[in-house]
Design a protein around this nucleic acid. Structure first.
Lengths: 353, 353
DNA sequence: ATGAAAGCGCTAACAA
DNA sequence: TTGTTAGCGCTTTCAT
């Protein structure tokens, strides 16, 4: 047990071993071979360091060598399956590169984004991943001014390379799967898929809505008014929209494209007010993944992002040294329903484009 | 736009403003009042700093002042509702204190825990929260040797203060709620609650099993062999256990205490193989929370940890300067089922102790 | 094969 | 009210 008063430094070790500080430094940092320090000396110093409970001061190293060994990622929130899986994968990659991952959430607050990025720059992070920023270009400005390499993830920007989910392909495949599984209905309410959740002015929602409308128009018929309910990500808003739709149709729609688990929570909140026999032949698709949601009593087709590939792609962009705007799209995958109730869906045959 | 070659330092600002480096330092770090620097000078320097795009080098400050402004938390994984909610709250508290949160997951690997803590110590973090460590005491050893204040969360240790979930109170309340909601059954299989998931040798499981056994013994009758199925946290193991139990009973039990969402996933995996009419009167309790799981087609009573209080308590322990072993327990809360199917449960009346 | 010395950017005594 | 100076612990030439 060492004294708590002051930490052991390389000078202490130098005194202990009779070597010089620079020799100690080299022996401990792995550069001793290059410095042609004898293996004996290096090993001896390493042993003494271990015995003395020496831990290197990375602030000092960072200050001197202008490298911190930190790599940052900002994201909207931790408490979210998508973001936390990104964190998990990001961390694994960072670790593999010997970097210390620093994850900070910014709660979709532009000011918080600015402050956080500033702080990370001050901590001399070596690169930054920007996930779902409200204003990626503003972040890019800060990074560029500091000469900090960075990549946008999930939400693209115009001032840095981006890796994003292929919303078009995902929504297209999900819409096809919904229509494939949808049961025919007669008048007065023919079978028709509805879209709920998200916001039209949101980049991802807009792409998904466009794909939904394209496929529905081609396979079912023209999109009618009130077929797209996309004004909010708030669960409660979706609950209200769902209730209104149910009232308007006099029942549940034949197919429902739910844009995110947030919206799905709201939908379920409304569903819970219905009697058990109200769910006849509905098929639900959710653009997001949650293992429990895929086990509902009604068939739920889910979309799972390829998180591994999003992160791997971001690191590749970083390594490439690319700094201009470019977008790499990563296709998500469809997860078939695992519902208990007998469903009209056996397998999903249509592959993702 | 500044030159990318070298970052602006306080010396550059000193040259630009005609002041000295220390005056610049004080003007920028907020200590200028104490140093009795004129407001004019301070503001002027701050303006020039902003114009020059100056960002402080926190490695240098940290090295000099022996404070990094970093606070660490290690946790088993990010991709988990409980842990990611802890992260979210931890971050909010850290931010409120002007500290930069550093979250690292260690994947329930003792070696990774050691390495990570070592790295965080090297980065001069000012305090550490240790969530669900496989070996809290080993971590405490490392921290103590470095004079690093730390608090265990969720899993207690013998060498540092701990804040943990009150497993006994939670499991007791959940078991009571299950028995209250359970429908009577006649011979040959009288109504009886079963426990599934987790591992007996695990601290939390052991506490929950003890409470379950105590309440069941008091209200239903002696615990029989095969009534506690707790050998693993693996979803697939729980699926197998559930299948075996179903075969043994010739149907589903009247009540099921599922120990964690991991086990619940496995249970659902087996449930998905059953016909829709197999779920007659089962009541499920799950010691964990997931919004979707609480919306299942069968009634599911869930336990939600008081995450806010766990973190707040940990910070209080940190502030108290306590360093010896002591355990603060935080009671979780019961979340009533929001099931669509008519359930025997209207309200949960029994309060948590 | 090793040591001496300078300096990374900042803060804080000590002067003035 | 401000400037000077001496490090914080490390890496890295440049000597030897």
């Amino acid at each position: 047990m060492q004294r708590a008063t002051r930490k052991t430094t390389i000078y202490d070790l130098a005194a202990l071993t009779g070597a010089s500080a620079s020799t100690v430094s080299a022996s401990l940092s792995g550069t001793w071979r290059a410095r042609r320090i004898s293996e004996d000396t290096a090993l001896r110093i390493q042993r003494v360091a271990a015995e003395a409970g020496y831990t290197i001061n990375l602030q000092a190293r960072g200050l001197r060598s202008a490298r911190s060994g930190l790599i940052g990622m900002i994201l909207p929130a931790h408490f979210n399956r998508f973001f936390s899986s990104l964190s998990q994968i990001f961390e694994a990659h960072a670790r593999a590169r010997g970097l210390c991952p620093v994850l900070v959430s910014t709660l979709r607050d532009p000011d918080e984004e600015r402050r956080t990025v500033g702080k990370l720059i001050s901590h001399a992070i070596e690169a930054l991943f920007v996930v779902g920023a409200t204003n990626p270009d503003r972040v890019s400005e800060l990074c560029s001014a500091a000469g900090l390499p960075h990549v946008n993830i999930d939400l693209p920007g115009a001032r840095a390379p981006s890796v994003v989910s292929d919303n078009d392909a995902g929504a297209e495949a999900l819409t096809h799967a919904l229509i494939d599984a949808m049961r025919p209905r007669g008048d007065p309410a023919p079978a028709r898929p509805y879209f709920i959740g998200g916001a039209r002015w949101d980049y991802a929602s807009a792409e998904r809505i466009a794909a939904f409308e394209r496929v529905v128009a081609a396979r079912v018929g023209p999109i009618g008014p009130g077929q797209i309910l996309a004004d909010s990500y708030e669960p409660d808003a979706s609950a209200r929209d769902m209730a209104a739709l149910h009232a308007r149709l006099g029942g549940l729609p034949a197919a429902l494209f739910v844009n995110s688990t947030f919206a799905f929570e709201g939908v379920l909140k409304f569903f819970a007010t219905l009697p058990a026999d109200a769910f006849g032949d509905i098929v639900v698709g959710c653009y997001d993944y949650d293992p429990f949601a895929s086990f509902m009593h009604i068939p739920v087709i889910m979309v799972r992002q390829n998180v591994e590939e999003l992160i791997a792609g971001a690191f590749r962009l970083l390594d490439s040294g690319a700094t201009g705007p470019m977008i790499v799209k990563v296709a998500p995958e469809l997860v078939p329903p695992r519902t208990i109730r007998t469903s009209p869906i056996e397998t999903l045959t249509r592959p993702l484009t």
